[in-house]
Computed example of a mutant assay.
Amino acid sequence: MIRVLVADDEPLVRAGVRAVLATDPGIETVAEAADGHEAVEAVRRHRPDVAVLDIRMPRADGIEAAATLLSLAPGTGVVMLTTFGEDPYILRALDAGATGFLVKSGPPEELISAVHAVAGQAAYLSPKVAARVVAHLTARQAATGRASEARQRVDALTPREREVLALLAGGLTNGRIGRQLGMTEGTVKGHVSSVLRRLGVDNRAAAAVLAHEAGLRVTP
């Protein structure tokens, strides 16, 4: 059972998220919060597997809450809920360690997919969010020359590690990566750990961003 915290300052949104999650028998909403401070306290008390956070909330926004709760409970994955026009917040959330990003206007099934992916230690970017993030990364590459550095780091990986990175960046869980590459989940976990270490990043979302920056062909 995947245990989930839902945090949003709008009661109607919280109710909608809770209702969508309730359609999956493998997911249980164990706590709710109306702001970032409440979200951190709820994580402290309930230790959920996944926290679904509105990216903009009073007192402490979703990004502040994500950074705090990931330090407090590293085993809790974070899915951020965003609206259009919040691209700078999305990039900040990536830097804070969030691994899932959804647009509130997206289809309900994306929420279910994101919770399962993040609970399985995978990254999940909804297609609408991914397109905007990649656009920003492309602009940042042109401005800072990060693409060349990213390519050097990705090229230093073994061919198998690059295959794993391409699938990881496509949002696949370790189990799905293993099935696609004919490896056990434990072997995939070892490759993922090696990829993160050799790329010099802390989490799968950061590795996915680096893969896009390097121009690696991502496999969904």
Score class of each variant (00 low, 15 high):
Thr82Tyr: 06
Glu149Met: 14
Arg160Asp: 13
Arg92Leu: 03
Leu91Ala: 07
Val164Gln: 11
Ala117Leu: 07
Pro88Asn: 12
Arg92Cys: 00
Ala114Glu: 06
Ala156Asp: 10
Ala147Asp: 14
Ser148His: 14
Gly85Lys: 11
Gly171Cys: 09
Val129Ala: 09
Val103Trp: 03
Asn174Met: 14
Ser113Ala: 15
Ala122Pro: 00
Thr99Asp: 11
Thr138Glu: 15
Ala135Asn: 07
Thr138Trp: 05
Gly77Met: 06
Thr82Met: 05
Leu94Val: 12
Tyr89Trp: 14
Gly171Leu: 11
Val133Leu: 13
Gln152Ala: 14
Asp155Gln: 12
Ala169Met: 04
Ala147Gln: 15
Ser148Ile: 13
Leu94Thr: 02
Val79Gly: 01
Thr138Arg: 13
Gly100Ser: 11
Gly100Cys: 12
Leu167Val: 13
Glu163Arg: 11
Gly100Asp: 09
His136Lys: 04
Gly97Pro: 10
Leu72Arg: 08
Met80Val: 04
Ser148Ala: 15
Ala96Ser: 12
Arg140Asn: 12
Gln121Phe: 11
Leu157Ala: 10
Pro107Tyr: 10
Ser105Asn: 10
Glu163Asn: 09
Phe101Met: 07
Ala135Pro: 01
Gln152His: 04
Leu94Glu: 02
Ser113Pro: 06
Glu109Ile: 11
His136Cys: 08
Leu157Pro: 10
Ala135His: 11
Leu102Lys: 03
Lys128Pro: 02
Thr173Gln: 12
Val164Pro: 10
Arg132Asp: 11
Asn174Ile: 06
Gly170Met: 10
Leu137Thr: 05
Ala123Met: 08
Val154Cys: 04
Ala96Trp: 01
Glu110Gly: 09
Gly120Ser: 15
Gly145Arg: 12
Ala122Cys: 07
Tyr124Gly: 00
Thr144Arg: 08
Leu125Ile: 02
Leu81Asp: 01
Thr144Ser: 13
Val133Trp: 02
His116Trp: 05
Val103Met: 15
Ala122Leu: 05
Ile90Lys: 01
Val164Phe: 10
Val133Met: 06
Val154Met: 08
Met80Gly: 01
Ala117Gln: 04
Ala96Arg: 05
Thr144Asn: 12
Ala143Gln: 15
Val154Gln: 09
Val78Ser: 05
Glu149Trp: 15
Leu125Tyr: 13
Val118His: 05
Gly85Val: 06
Val134Ser: 03
Asn174Arg: 14
Pro108Cys: 11
Ala131Trp: 04
Thr83Ile: 07
Ala98Lys: 00
Gln152Tyr: 00
Ala166Phe: 13
Ala139Ile: 09
Ser71Ala: 15
Ala156Gly: 15
Glu110Leu: 06
Glu109Val: 12
Ala142Ser: 11
Ala142Tyr: 10
Gly171His: 03
Gly77Pro: 09
Gly171Trp: 02
Val78Arg: 01
Pro159Cys: 14
Ser113Asn: 08
Ala135Thr: 11
Ala139Trp: 10
Leu70Met: 14
Thr83Arg: 05
Val133Lys: 00
Glu161Thr: 08
Leu94Lys: 06
Ala96Gly: 12
Glu161Lys: 04
Gln141Leu: 08
Ala150Tyr: 04
Thr173Phe: 07
Ser71Arg: 14
Phe101Arg: 04
Tyr124Pro: 00
Gln152Thr: 15
Leu102Met: 09
Ala98Phe: 00
Pro127Ile: 05
His136Ile: 01
Leu91Ile: 09
Ala142His: 14
Ala150Val: 04
Leu172Ala: 14
Leu172Cys: 12
Val79Cys: 03
Ile112Phe: 08
Pro127Gln: 05
Leu94Cys: 06
